[in-house]
Design a protein around this nucleic acid. Structure first.
Lengths: 344, 344
DNA sequence: CTGAAAGCGCTTACAG
DNA sequence: CTGAAAGCGCTTACAG
């Protein structure tokens, strides 16, 4: 087996200096067209391709962009990654993907690994456990551009790409009200997480705008799983003043609600309206089909990646960190359509 | 902003040679315990961590393992990646993830990039378009271990991890026969793809074992989408001799079948039995719930990663390439349960 | 047990 | 327009 050709082999083959080869490959203006042609031919002849690692070490320019996410195996996250990859690929950067698996310690370790791997930039969606941001400050201290998406921490001055959760929730509630529901409960996730805090805000704002009182009994926080949502729904239904609609801060929770309604033979949307969040792939398959808020995860990932590439292109431009909200869209299906039944 | 400490800073701080620091950090046996302790303290003091890129260039040992997949945003693939990441992470390797987006040209480009990035090994699930394997031979020529998973090409001598598609299909058909179905149709994907070829084999073998004739009219190949499956189902139902069960080579196809049955008010499982493949997350949510074959994607990814780590540990051991089949499991739900109704 | 020195494969100021 | 030479931050034979 022959060893892979390096730049010295190419230079020797042509009888020129390695610097000439290096410049020719980068289309450096000071190299003559004739020499460039010779170099490209030799490169093909010897099947040469530059060692990215060596180039990185010498130039200081990394060859990869790091991504840290809680877990890759969710519909939302894998679609974010899909969007990121589509944007990053043409730029020539590699994508190094790390999972925190929702643990702060692993996230910290991921950050260190990426720094030691000389990545050019880091895109992160923080874990549930992450409250301290020392590890993120470390990224900035190493002069590595950092962008947060979806799961962000607000204390840090970095660019953020998020779904406009407040708006998504607001529109969901407005829709329920339009459909004639007025006693609207909220099943929310852990309130310390950015997205759930904002969905709660949207819920409150929409009630206020429509002169509906906030009923503390109808607000159930910190629900994480389908079975917890099931139980919470049972409690709501058994209470003295049961709601006539339930807004869920995720589709997983909505599945628990539908399960509870089905078990008790309560009709949705006729008796109880249900809206989820995330527009997971099964929204068309539940009975009734599930109204939900589409977050456009591919666009979230793509935007984060685009901004990263912009930053990497003009490193010197220090712009003010901004937060970009991707506008969500309510996908109306049957579970909330008491007035007009949609075709699906 | 201070520059990150390098190994020279640590050596200078202690008044020792960089070689001593390097060896101490690797727990080299020739370094005294006392010196090691000093080095570790200095490392903490200066907040030093080794530059992986430089180490890679000098030692020739890569720091990353590359993964090439068609698309990350599928339930199956993102779970494979999840399994891979869980195994790779403790080893200290980074995971570089590339998408071919089902295009041969991009897959080729991914391979080149990974080689130039000096990855230690490559895990690949090939694209639909991939028939030529020159790019994979290139990986071997560069002495980089290669492992294929799920979507494999058979012409190459490499380790493979696959779901046992033949068995999965076989058991699905046996189950349908046990449930009293005897006129069993097959909706299959593109037959040139390994997994579909084998699911077809399993289908044929199970019919043969049970003395059922193969009915060419009931075998519809090259169905890729839900709507194609819908149309194919309509054709089957309208034919002179309609089947009494339909085995689908993917859950997506099964959704098209259920859609067609629903539209025509044909009851499943009573009139037509339906079995899918892949056990996608919505199997519990369809009406009827969908019997399907679970492939254990996390295990497939984890096995591939484990074998890669083994190969990287003892590089010299040239073992014979083997194919490992992960045994699938039929998850029986309502769509195929004509005799005994399962609880779900 | 420790150190001096070479070198991995590039890039880039500097010189001409 | 091209080349000689230094150096990125490590590791590793070799020497003692």
């Amino acid at each position: 087996m022959e060893k892979k050709a390096n730049i010295i082999d190419v230079a020797r083959y042509l009888g020129v200096a390695t610097s000439t080869v290096s410049r020719a490959l980068k289309d450096h203006p000071s190299i003559s067209a004739k020499t460039k042609k010779l170099v490209f031919n030799a490169v093909r002849e010897l099947n040469y391709s530059p060692n990215k690692i060596a180039a990185n070490l010498r130039s200081g320019n990394g060859t990869a962009i790091g991504v840290i996410i809680p877990k890759i195996n969710s519909n939302f996250m894998s679609n974010c990654i899909f969007g990121i990859e589509n944007v990053i690929y043409p730029s020539g950067y590699n994508l190094i993907i790390c999972q925190s698996t929702e643990h702060y310690e692993k996230e910290l370790s991921n950050v260190k690994t990426l720094i030691d791997s000389q990545v050019s930039g880091i895109l992160i969606s923080v874990s549930n456990e992450t409250v301290s941001t020392g590890h993120l400050a470390m990224v900035k201290a190493n002069n590595i551009p950092l962008i947060m998406f979806d799961r962000i921490t607000e204390s840090l001055q970095v660019d953020c790409i998020v779904n406009d959760d407040t708006r998504g929730a607001y529109e969901a509630i407005e829709h329920l009200i339009e459909q004639g529901y007025s006693k609207i409960a909220l099943l929310n996730g852990p309130e310390h997480i950015y997205v759930y805090k904002n969905r709660y805000q949207g819920y409150k704002q929409a009630l206020a705008s429509n002169n509906l009182d906030l009923q503390p009994d109808w607000i159930i926080q910190n629900i994480n799983t389908q079975s917890n949502a099931y139980q919470a729904t049972c409690l709501l239904l058994d209470s003295k003043h049961p709601p006539d609609a339930i807004f869920c801060a995720s589709d997983t929770l909505a599945l628990g609600v539908l399960e509870a309604l089905k078990q008790r033979n309560i009709q949705s949307p006729e008796q109880i309206g249900v809206v989820g969040y995330g527009n997971d792939i099964y929204g068309d398959l539940t009975t009734p089909t599930l109204t939900s808020v589409e977050q456009f995860p591919q666009e979230i990932g793509a935007s984060a990646a685009q901004i990263m590439l912009q930053i990497l292109e003009d490193k010197n431009v220090k712009s003010i960190p901004k937060t970009i909200s991707i506008r969500p869209r309510l996908i109306v299906r049957r579970s909330s359509s008491r007035k007009v039944k949609p075709s699906i």
